[in-house]
Every structure is written in structure tokens, then in C-alpha cells.
Design a protein around this nucleic acid. Structure first.
Length: 360
DNA sequence: CATTCGTGGAA
DNA sequence: TTTCCAAGAAT
């Protein structure tokens, strides 16, 4: 914990480690779609998608996204509604809202070219310490550390570091280490190799140390403590919230949808009418709440199913209903009556997709 | 520094 | 089934 960089790196063979690591990476790296070319825009998109998201999940989204927005300018010129729809189901939606804003700024201020300056790139929305290092090193071969969860796990074991990687301050320690051991002649492969090693060999639970290309550099393996690292405190238990939602159908067979607020959970996505902000005790109160909030006259209502949806920090328990209603007011700013076909062009959270499917 | 932000897959 | 988590950033 208190040991300094000199002590951590004592007896560590930097050049040999770089060689072993990069040699392995070049031979064993996965053939991923964002590794086909060095377009800074595509590298950037992939890095944003990969934040807290598995490679297998990202791959189809990446293809779909690049097909729809092949260039930075194409994304900058797109409507947010269209951009959100392509991101639908991927989660952490502030990522795409920030990326969209950042790309617009790059188009305006830098002529559409992703800045290779650490100062300029890291100042863009949604671009933090990791993404800065990842894009600058992979796309521009600039020797900046790109410290993610993989890198902290791998280096915790290599150097037998027992700091809690759940704490924000710990990342800086690893960035210092990487700054001193990064291969200046190939920072792109070096950074990617650390992450690839974490994904394929130096895994969280049962690391494949016998197959590890840098086993001879690893202090944790030498001490037989690789499974006890890294140190990471548990996340607190999520809070449970229960409410109701309803598929409201008017006389024309149109369905009522509502745009969520521009900040907070699932920002700017669409949803079905619900009492999330004023949970009701019984069905009568629910009918009253929905009638007043959405300006409709409920003619009949019936529960169709119950759902549970788990977020990182919240668990939603939703009772889903279907109802026939008289439309007492035309569309407002945040609500629309749409046909089942039109519904498909709006971005919905997964939980509301499930409810819609249950209704159909 | 702690909390808020999704989702689906693996152990 | 439960737990943990996956190439983090903003607040």
C-alpha cells in the first residue's frame, strides 16, 4: 500500500515483460471487428460501447452502429432519436448521448478529425481517463496508459498489489505503473495486450496461469495467491421499487407512449404509462393516477403479467396491465399515441420491451 | 470519495 | 438460484 513505484518495479524486467506480452498478443489476439482498421472514430465508438459491457454483447451493436453511422460526420448529423434507437438494449444510455455531443464538437471545432491531443480529446463529453488512453494509444500510437478493470486485475497479480480496485484513487496508482512499463515502440499492442490477457488468461475467478505468457513475471503466481487478487470490496445491495405500468389503447387502436426525462435513469428513452413516481397501493388508485396524469378515461383494465427487472443499483417490480381508454387530450410534448407499427422506431428500455411483448 | 447510471452471460 | 460482473464516466 505505502510502497512507492521504485519498490513495486524492483527486480521487474520491463523489456522482457513487454516482449513476452506483445508476442503473445500478436499470436493469440481475437479477430474483433474494431481491430480491422485504425479509424480513430471506430476505435472510439468501440471503446465507448465496451465500457462495462462484454465483447460478445458489443459485437452485433458495433456492426449495426457503423453500418448506420459509418463516419464521424454521419453520427454528428444524425437525430438523437435515431441514435438512441441503435443503442437500444445496450444500457448506460448516457454513453451514447455524450458520444453524440462529443462527435458534434469534434466536427465543429476540429473539422471532424478526432484530436490526437490528450488535452483536447479528454475534454470531450463521455471521455474519461480510460477512454483517453485507449483511443490515443490504439488509434494514434501515443504511449498513454489505458487502465480498465482487466488491467487492474492483471497488474494486481503481477505486482502483488493489494489496494482495493473498487476505490477510485487506486486507478491512478496503476496508471503510474503502466506509464513506466508501457512499450513506447508499440503502445497500442501493449495496452490491448494487457486487456486481452485479462479477458482470456488472467480471468477473475480461475486464471489460466499455466498458459500465461507472463507467468515468470507474476509475483502473485510465485506466491500462489493469484486467486486472492485483486482485492475488491462488494457493491451494496440494490434498492427495491414496485410500481405499475399499462398498455393504454385508444378508440383507434393507438398506444400511448411517453418520453422519459432528459436526465437520470434511462434518460430520453420511451416508456409505457406508469406510476413510477407515485406508486399506488391498489388498482383503483392506479386507474385514478393514470387517468389524471395522462388525461384519459379508463374504460376497462386487466393485469397481464408481473415482471422483475434488475439494474445495477435498483430492482424494479412491475405489475403490467392492459387497458382500453378514451383519449381526452391530444399529444403533449412528452406523450404520443402511436400505432403498433410506429412503436418500433422509438427506443425503449428492455423492461418495457418485455411488457409490450407480453401484451402482443 | 461514494453514488448513479443497464444489461445479459458466466460461474 | 445467487452472485458477480464487463475495455467507466459523470455527479
Amino acid at each position: 500500500m505505502k510502497e512507492n513505484l521504485q519498490q513495486i518495479l524492483a527486480h521487474f524486467h520491463i523489456e522482457l515483460f513487454q516482449h513476452d506480452l506483445i508476442q503473445w498478443f500478436q499470436a493469440e489476439k481475437r479477430d474483433l471487428p474494431w481491430r480491422k482498421e485504425k479509424d480513430p472514430y471506430k476505435i472510439w465508438v468501440s471503446e465507448v460501447m465496451l465500457q462495462q459491457t462484454r465483447v460478445d454483447t458489443v459485437i452485433p451493436y458495433f456492426y449495426q452502429f457503423i453500418e448506420k453511422f459509418p463516419t464521424l460526420d454521419a453520427l454528428a448529423d444524425a437525430e438523437e432519436e435515431e441514435v438512441l434507437k441503435v443503442w437500444e438494449g445496450l444500457g448506460y444510455y448516457s454513453r451514447i448521448r455524450h458520444l453524440h455531443a462529443a462527435v458534434k464538437e469534434v466536427k465543429e471545432k476540429y473539422g471532424g478529425r478526432v484530436p490526437a491531443s490528450k488535452e483536447q480529446f479528454s475534454s470531450l463529453k463521455g471521455v474519461g481517463p480510460y477512454t483517453t488512453g485507449a483511443v490515443l494509444s490504439i488509434a494514434y500510437d501515443i504511449p498513454e496508459p489505458a487502465v480498465d478493470g482487466n488491467v487492474m486485475r492483471v497488474l494486481s497479480r503481477i505486482f502483488y498489489i493489494t489496494d482495493d480496485i473498487a476505490k477510485g484513487s487506486t486507478r491512478k496508482k496503476f496508471e503510474q505503473i503502466v506509464s513506466h512499463i508501457i512499450a513506447h515502440d508499440n503502445p497500442s499492442d501493449f495496452n490491448q495486450a494487457l486487456m486481452e490477457l485479462g479477458a482470456l488468461i488472467c480471468t477473475p475467478k480461475n486464471p489460466s496461469c499455466l498458459l500465461c505468457p507472463v507467468q515468470r513475471h507474476c509475483r502473485a503466481f510465485a506466491e500462489g495467491v493469484e486467486k486472492q487478487l485483486p482485492i475488491k470490496t462488494k457493491a451494496k445491495a440494490p434498492k427495491h421499487v414496485a410500481f405499475r405500468a399499462v398498455v393504454l389503447v385508444n378508440e383507434e387502436g393507438r398506444i400511448l407512449i411517453e418520453k422519459r426525462p432528459s436526465s437520470g435513469l434511462l434518460a430520453n428513452l420511451w416508456q409505457l404509462p406508469n406510476d413510477e413516481h407515485a406508486p399506488t397501493l391498489n388498482e383503483q388508485e392506479f386507474i385514478k393516477e393514470i387517468s389524471e396524469r395522462y388525461h384519459v378515461l379508463i374504460r376497462s383494465m386487466e393485469r397481464i403479467d408481473t415482471f422483475e427487472h434488475v439494474f445495477s443499483h435498483i430492482v424494479w417490480h412491475i405489475e403490467a396491465y392492459k387497458a382500453k381508454a378514451l383519449q381526452l387530450q391530444i399529444d403533449r410534448k412528452t406523450t404520443k399515441w402511436v400505432t403498433a407499427d410506429e412503436l418500433k422506431q422509438y427506443a425503449f428500455p428492455v423492461i418495457y420491451q418485455k411488457i409490450w411483448q407480453a401484451y402482443e
